[in-house]
Write a protein that binds this DNA or RNA. Structure first.
Lengths: 249, 249
DNA sequence: GACCGCGAATATGTATACAATTTCCTCATT
DNA sequence: AATGAGGAAATTGTATACATATTCGCGGTC
């Protein structure tokens, strides 16, 4: 509960604080729904429908969709509307690579700023994670697991890195929805705990290593080797051109 | 604000651009104008004026402004309109920290993927930089200096990191516009060259070091110790609360 | 019965209209 | 002359209307 507590609270935009506009409400609702996997990848986000749901005009809906598109969790196809994004296997690999780069840097920043209050906040967060996990609330648990990394980024105290990681974590949620192995239970509740222990002991090298292993573990439990259905068609198409075009033309 | 017209339409509309919406054109023009420091921080971006300039309605202008706001080079103040962003000293420090983290990671990626073509592209780019520098075209040189880092990011092959760096480079341009020392000539033309040499020799450790030194050099030539005028008032206000509130109340 | 074209229905792209808020000028007051 | 209230002008926020593009279904044709 020291000065770090201040950094955990998002700073205002160097002006006066403002009431939330209705556009923000739509943005937040859709954002949360995607993060909690209530809106799976590919879901069509029709402007009229969203407008009716939230009681606003398409103008306001479009504003929210533009923001979501920029964060790459919604794709706006010209003249064809918005859908929840479907990251490709290649996207997924790049996102995990980016996360490793950003989050190791964040660990370094955290090591230089960590204090009692921050450690306590992290412990409380993992407690909430475990509670959700034990309660079988899978959506809430996935959400909290991502939030753990964002909490760490806030402790690191670098807003650009935090905001970027927020985008990467959101997209990771889409990736998990798309590529999770059916059988595998993604169960790494104690990895966050072990990571906090390394932080507490001031072992930065160990903390970095654990973070990298943690991210590798998440990636390894996904099914990124093959392709999803739609991509499969692309591959068939490519093979058609390579193998049989000459014989049929 | 007819001066906006002069800075934003230096060149005529190019030939038919199929697939690009008019909103993209506004976005690109404003983005380039900010990057080339033709639109300094704080410049008001009135929707009607921009709409008149580009011959579109405010609806289209707003779409572009929302995107620019998300990239943090434009600030939209509720009910008060959009202005070119003015990063604070704190923002500047955080942005340089983020750049060091991201760009060292990019150097590692580049080392694993570098080839003859990439080296040639980098050399050609520095040649263009030097040409602009010798020609005294300072705006173009600043623009190309930033683009060098983005070219490197593209070679690295990680889109999320590239897009994030694009945002950081754009904001760096605003930071330079705000905090450049009047006397100091920001002249590090050969640093990019030395960096390429390290890459060519396969010396990743040296390349990382040079990149860090390069970014530190840019930051060191800025005037980030004091505050700008507006910020000064904020500080006075803060000190008033810290020092004299008890004695006056 | 399958395929193609055409038109209606649907959805998005953009402009315009109106409401709400801020900004700025004017003028009275001290 | 400086200050503050009041109102007009300007600007942004949101909704609606119209134009354009896409999607879907129907009917005709082979």
């Amino acid at each position: 509960m020291t000065e770090l507590a201040d950094t955990l609270i998002p700073r205002p935009v160097r002006g006066r604080r403002q009431g939330t506009s209705p556009g923000d409400a739509i943005y937040n609702h859709v954002f949360n729904a995607i993060l909690e996997q209530r809106l799976p990848p590919g879901t069509k986000l029709t402007e009229d429908v969203l407008g009716d749901i939230f009681g606003v005009s398409r103008t306001t809906v479009r504003k929210a969709l533009i923001r979501l598109e920029h964060e790459k969790i919604v794709e706006i196809r010209p003249n064809r509307g918005a859908v929840v994004a479907s990251p490709s296997v290649e996207d997924a690999r790049e996102i995990f690579t980016a996360r490793k780069a950003v989050e190791t840097a964040i660990v370094d920043l955290v090591m230089a700023r960590i204090d009692e209050g921050a450690i306590e906040a992290l412990r409380q967060h993992t407690a909430a994670e475990n509670a959700a996990h034990r309660a079988g609330d899978r959506r809430r648990w996935i959400r909290l697991s991502g939030d753990f990394h964002l909490l760490l980024a806030r402790i690191g105290g670098n807003r650009p890195l935090h905001d970027f990681l927020k985008e990467l974590v959101s997209r990771t949620s889409l990736i998990i929805a798309l590529y999770e192995r059916p059988g595998k239970a993604t169960c790494q509740s104690d990895e966050h705990k072990a990571f906090i222990d390394a932080l507490t002991q001031g072992d930065g090298e160990q903390a970095r290593t654990l973070m990298l292993r943690h991210l590798d573990a998440i990636e390894a439990e996904l099914h990124l080797e093959g392709e999803e259905d739609a991509i499969d068609l692309h591959r068939v198409f490519a093979e058609y051109f390579n193998d049989t075009r000459n014989s049929t033309g």
